[in-house]
Nucleic acid binder design. Structure first.
Lengths: 342, 342
DNA sequence: AAGCTTTGCGCAAAGCTTTGCGCTGTTTTT
DNA sequence: AAAAACAGCGCAAAGCTTTGCGCAAAGCTT
């Protein structure tokens, strides 16, 4: 791999100093028009572009953002990453992606690795396992830009973008209620996650508003793996009186539930209605199509990046929390009417 | 954002020269044990880590790989990216991801942008639109490491990783044949793509081997969007004698076809059998579950990265083409027996 | 024609790291 | 005890860019 041409190379060929070449390329008034055009011509010929390493060293900026997500292969995260990338690009920034694979250990490592590479800051969605948040101290203490999204923490110190989880869960309960469902179960995620807490709160509030009793038998938790979701579903189905509707903390969980319910020969939504969260792409393709809360993933990424650049511009900017509106898309898994929707 | 500590900072605090600090941290024999431990202690205290920009400048390496994919949100690509990332990490490299969004224009831009940031090379899957390959000249002429995967070009100059597309398509035809299907249609992708050509070749060979006639009415093309796939499907369904089986160039296409077929009130696989390509995650969730050729995506990423590092180590290494074995996973969309598989 | 301004360019430092070489002061050799 | 060896550290360059300042030559003023 040949070394790219540098100012030095151009300067040598033109028999001028490096500074002259540098100034010529930037149209500095000290440089004669003749020289400017000669330099630019040569630069074009050799396809010169400034070395970002040198610039980074000089300006103390790398124009790179570290992004940590629980996984790369879920549509939810990749779509958010797309959203981040779009805004980053507009600012001339690149993103460095690291996946925690839902592991606290790997998340901590990723934070350190990314900081070592001198990213200018981090945009992070916490791993499922993460309960301790000390690995962000270094960022916070040194005013290194940091933004959380979806799964967040330390919200009084760190800006974040989340969905209106409680509100969304509330709406789902009302939707179930209006469609005649009364024994509404909820498969929650790990207790320490904000998304779990918020959605649970919405679930409870929804029940209250609909004057439905809270039955703790209808409340189960799982880590977010399909296997554990199946286990949780079985637990629900073993109740003396089965739930007639299940809300899942996300679509992965609800897909697993769906599989288990079918396995047991039950009909959806005749026997049990389902509603998921986050609106993975295949919601429309499963049978029956899945009612789900759609997250504006791309926009969440956009907003997260914008919060990031707010901090880059002003390290002491106020800590803002952005809450994104979700929308409940009603499909066949939660309505008993014979008319097929969507 | 505070500046990270540098060797200079450590040197000043210890009243020694920068070189001494640098050598101490690397256990250089010229440095006394006392000094070494003093330096290391301080470095640990201040959490020192070498500035990669300075190192990059010195060693003329950035330890970054540019990766260009048609999109970020498909499981196929994000999984391959995971595979690339794994091997990259092992080598202490980071990857810079750019999405072409299936646009030739954006692909060309991405190549230039990434080269400007001084990535050490590129791992690329061509966009659907790309028919001209000149934007890779710069890489090839300057021995900058380059690897293609899945959608490839200039294979005598550039190493690549592909799937055994022809073989896979062939096997699908045989599978259809064995299950009693005779009018087998194929929805192909853009003609200029190698994956289109190869799968078409396998389709034709499969027909021949099964002694089925080639009916050009059963051969339609689409760009890879769901909308165009629906259009192509309609065209097939309008035939005087409908096909009784459809092979799609990938799962996105076949999902669209599935939707359209259901829309028209036809049964799968009773009226029409389906087989897809690339094995997106939700294949198991659709109804009926989709028979599909599974690509070893993660391994494709691994291999691509390995080919990349072969070039990094030896710029003149031989141009290798790796072909990965796929596997046909048979589910319900392509078998008429009453016994449910998977 | 002498002095002043302007024009056009080069020097050098800073940002950070590694490393060949040189330089002291001490220890060992004979 | 003088010479040789060695231990332990610093200088400076290289990698690339920008920019304040200095300097020379040319042009201008009166």
């Amino acid at each position: 791999m040949k070394r790219p041409v540098s100012l030095k190379d151009l300067a040598k060929e033109l028999n001028v100093s490096i500074s002259t070449v540098s100034r010529a390329l930037r149209n500095h008034p000290d440089i004669s028009p003749d020289m400017i055009s000669k330099v630019k011509k040569l630069a074009y010929k050799y396809n010169y572009s400034p070395n970002p390493l040198a610039m980074g060293l000089l300006r103390q900026e790398t124009r790179m953002i570290g992004v940590i997500v629980p996984d790369l292969v879920t549509h939810f995260y990749s779509s958010i990453i797309s959203g981040i990338e779009q805004v980053a690009k507009q600012h001339g920034y690149y993103i460095l992606i690291a996946s925690s694979n839902e592991s606290y250990q790997k998340e901590v490592e990723s934070v350190h690795n990314l900081l070592r590479t001198r990213v200018e800051g981090l945009i992070v969605c916490l791993s499922q396992e993460t309960k301790n948040y000390d690995h962000f101290n270094q960022l916070i203490e040194n005013d290194i830009p940091l933004v959380f999204f979806d799964r967040v923490c330390r919200t009084n110190e760190v800006p974040s973008v989340t969905a209106d989880n409680a509100e969304a869960a509330r709406k789902i309960i009302h939707h179930f209620y209006e469609n005649g469902f009364r024994r509404i179960a909820y498969i929650n995620g790990p207790d320490h996650l904000n998304i779990s807490k918020e959605r649970l709160a919405g679930y409870l509030q929804g029940l209250m508003e609909c004057q439905l009793p809270v039955d703790t038998n209808l409340l189960v938790s799982c880590n977010l793996s399909p296997d554990d979701a199946i286990r949780a579903t079985r637990k629900l189905l073993l109740q003396p009186t089965r739930p007639d509707a299940i809300l899942g903390i996300n679509d992965t969980v609800i897909f697993a539930a769906m599989q288990e319910i079918k396995e047991q020969g039950l009909q959806i939504p005749a026997d049990i209605a389902l509603v998921g969260f986050t609106g993975e792409f295949h919601s429309t393709l499963v049978e029956p199509s899945l009612t789900s809360v759609i997250h504006p993933t791309f926009e969440i990424g956009n907003e997260a990046a914008r919060l990031f650049f707010e901090q880059v511009k002003n390290p002491k900017s106020t800590v803002r929390q952005i809450m994104m509106k979700t929308s409940l898309v009603i499909r066949n898994s939660s309505v008993r009417s014979t008319s097929n929707k969507i």
